[in-house]
C-alpha cells in the first residue's frame, strides 16, 4: 500500500467537507439576507449569524485540503523516485486527476483571496472534489505508481503535462462560473428572492471572472500543446502526428479561440458566454478522459 494513496483519500474527504461547508455558508447567508429584504437597506455583519464562521471554516478546510493534496502529490513524487527514478506526480490518469483538482482548488483560493467572493466556492470546490472523487473511483491498478513506459520517460513530462493540466483546471473554473451564471440568471428572471442565489456576486462579475478564467487557460493550453509538439519531435519522429489527444487539444484550443473572438462582439457576453463556457468545459472533459477511453492513439498510456 502506498502512503500517498492514504493522503489522496484524506484529500477527498477534506474537499467533501469543504464543499459541504461552502453550501452551508450559502444557506446561512440566505437566512442572513432575509431580514434585509424586509426593509433594512443592507445586511449588517451582526445579522450574519452562521454565515461568517461557516465561510471562514470553509476557506480553512479548503486550504488544509489543498495542503494535504500537495503533500499527497509530493509523497507520490517521492514514491515514483524510488521506483523508477523520475518523479513527475502526474504520470497516469489518477495522478493527473489529483493534480487537476489541486490546480482547481489552488486557483479558487487565489480568486477568493483577490476578490473575496465565497459563494463561488460552492461550485468551484465541487468541481475540484468531483475530480478527486472520479480519480479515486478509478480501478486500483490505475492508482498505483507503475514505472514509466519508455516513451514517457523524459524530462518533458514535468512541464508538458503539468501545464496542460493546469489549463484544464482554468477551463473547469470557467465552466463552474458558467453554471453559476445561468442559475443566478434564472432566479433573477423568475424574480425569486431570498434564495441562495442572492449571495452570488452580480451577473457581470460572474461573467467577467469566467472570461478571466478562460484567459488564463487559453495561453496555458497553447503553451502545453506546443511543449507536447516539442516532445513529440524528440520521441515520435515529428512535432505533429494528428494523434487524437493532440488533435483534441487543438479542437479545445480552437473552441476557446472562437469564444475569445466572439466576446469582442456585443451580445456574446453573459448568457451565451456562460453556455459556451460550460460547453467548452465538456469538450475539455472529453479531451482529458474521453480520448483516453474511447479513441486509440499515441497517448493511450495516459
Amino acid at each position: 500500500m502506498l502512503r500517498s494513496l492514504f493522503l489522496f483519500d484524506v484529500t477527498f474527504w477534506l474537499y467533501l467537507a469543504a464543499m459541504g461547508l461552502y453550501f452551508g455558508y450559502l444557506l446561512a447567508s440566505r437566512k442572513a439576507l432575509q431580514p434585509a429584504m424586509a426593509g433594512h437597506p443592507s445586511a449588517s455583519s451582526e445579522d450574519d449569524g452562521w454565515a461568517q464562521p461557516l465561510g471562514q471554516l470553509a476557506t480553512w478546510v479548503t486550504f488544509f485540503g489543498l495542503l494535504v493534496n500537495g503533500l499527497a502529490l509530493g509523497t507520490r513524487a517521492y514514491e515514483r523516485m524510488q521506483i523508477s527514478g523520475t518523479f513527475a506526480p502526474w504520470s497516469n490518469q489518477f495522478e493527473a486527476m489529483a493534480y487537476v483538482s489541486f490546480a482547481i482548488i489552488a486557483g479558487y483560493l487565489l480568486l477568493e483571496l483577490k476578490y473575496g467572493i465565497k459563494a463561488i466556492g460552492a461550485f468551484v470546490v465541487s468541481i475540484g472534489f468531483i475530480a478527486m472523487g472520479a480519480a479515486s473511483l478509478l480501478p486500483y491498478r490505475y492508482q498505483v505508481a507503475e514505472p514509466l513506459v519508455p516513451a514517457l520517460n523524459s524530462y518533458w513530462i514535468y512541464i508538458h503535462v503539468s501545464i496542460t493540466l493546469t489549463s484544464y483546471a482554468a477551463f473547469a473554473m470557467a465552466g463552474g462560473l458558467g453554471v453559476m451564471y445561468l442559475l443566478k440568471e434564472r432566479a433573477e428572471r423568475q424574480g425569486r428572492q431570498g434564495t441562495i442565489f442572492d449571495t452570488f456576486p452580480s451577473l457581470e462579475k460572474i461573467d467577467e471572472l469566467g472570461y478571466k478564467a478562460v484567459m488564463v487557460g487559453f495561453p496555458l493550453l497553447a503553451f502545453g500543446t506546443i511543449l507536447g509538439a516539442m516532445w513529440a519531435n524528440y520521441a515520435w519522429g515529428g512535432y505533429w502526428s494528428w494523434d487524437p489527444k493532440e488533435t483534441w487539444a487543438l479542437i479545445v484550443w480552437l473552441i476557446y479561440g472562437a469564444y475569445i473572438h466572439a466576446r469582442m462582439n456585443r451580445g456574446w457576453e453573459g448568457h451565451r458566454a456562460a453556455i459556451y463556457q460550460i460547453f467548452g468545459f465538456l469538450m475539455v472533459i472529453f479531451c482529458f478522459w474521453g480520448v483516453n477511453f474511447l479513441l486509440s492513439g499515441l497517448h493511450a498510456y495516459a
Binding site: 487524437p244 483534441w248 480552437l254 473552441i255 472562437a258 466572439a262
Partner: peptide, 17 residues
C-alpha cells in the same frame, strides 16, 4: 475568424472519430 475556427474544430473532430 470565429466561423473558420469552428469549422476547423469540427473537421478535426471528424478526423478523430
Amino acid at each position: 475568424a470565429i466561423f473558420l475556427m469552428i469549422v476547423l474544430a469540427i473537421l478535426s473532430t471528424v478526423g478523430t472519430v
